[in-house]
Simulated assay, not measured.
Amino acid sequence: MNKKRRKKEENELDVISIRTMAQETLGDWGGAIATVAYVFLGYSSMVAYSCKSGEILFQLINLPAPISGSLFTALFTMLVSIWGTKATDRVNQYLTASLIGT
């Protein structure tokens, strides 16, 4: 019975994240710094998307840029929370192709 338990534990996958990889190589401080850097990257990307989408929507529908950016953020938040990641990925691919095309 002990062999079965050990075999089952060996087949389980460990969750690997940026924080755990940084902790393994750089220690606890490295893990904390990597986490803060990753959160900052996500936050700055979100702000950049909101600002630029606000400018684009301002030119299309003539709403002020802050309102347009907030509208875009609200719509994208609903897309992610209601329809999930597959639909979000499809919309993101379409928007990226449209941006490249223009």
Results as ranks from 00 to 15, higher is better:
P66R: 01
L99D: 11
S44T: 12
M46R: 06
R6W: 05
S68T: 05
K8H: 06
F58R: 03
E10A: 11
G30D: 02
K7T: 04
L26E: 15
E12V: 09
Q23H: 06
I100A: 12
L99S: 13
T73C: 03
M21T: 11
A48W: 03
K3C: 04
L57F: 11
A87L: 02
L60C: 01
Q23L: 04
E55M: 09
A37T: 07
L99Y: 14
Y94A: 14
A74T: 01
I33F: 04
T85L: 10
V80K: 09
C51D: 04
M21K: 14
K8R: 13
G69R: 00
L26V: 12
E24T: 12
Q59G: 09
S44K: 04
L60H: 04
M78H: 11
D28E: 15
I100G: 08
I100N: 12
T20G: 03
R6Q: 11
F58W: 05
W83A: 14
D89I: 07
I16C: 08
F40N: 06
K4F: 10
M78R: 03
I16D: 13
R6T: 08
V47M: 06
E10N: 08
D14H: 13
D89K: 04
R90I: 14
E10H: 09
L41S: 15
D28W: 07
L57Q: 00
L57K: 00
T25R: 15
M1E: 06
N62W: 02
Y49F: 13
F76H: 02
Q23V: 07
T35Y: 02
I100V: 13
F76V: 06
L63K: 05
Q59A: 12
T88H: 08
S45K: 06
Y38K: 15
V15K: 14
V15F: 15
N11L: 13
T20F: 03
F72Q: 03
T20W: 03
V47F: 05
L41W: 07
R90G: 10
R6S: 08
R5E: 13
T77V: 02
R6F: 09
D28G: 10
L13T: 09
R19D: 08
Q93C: 10
T73R: 02
G84R: 03
K86Q: 12
Y49K: 10
T35V: 00
R90S: 15
M1F: 05
I56A: 06
K8Q: 07
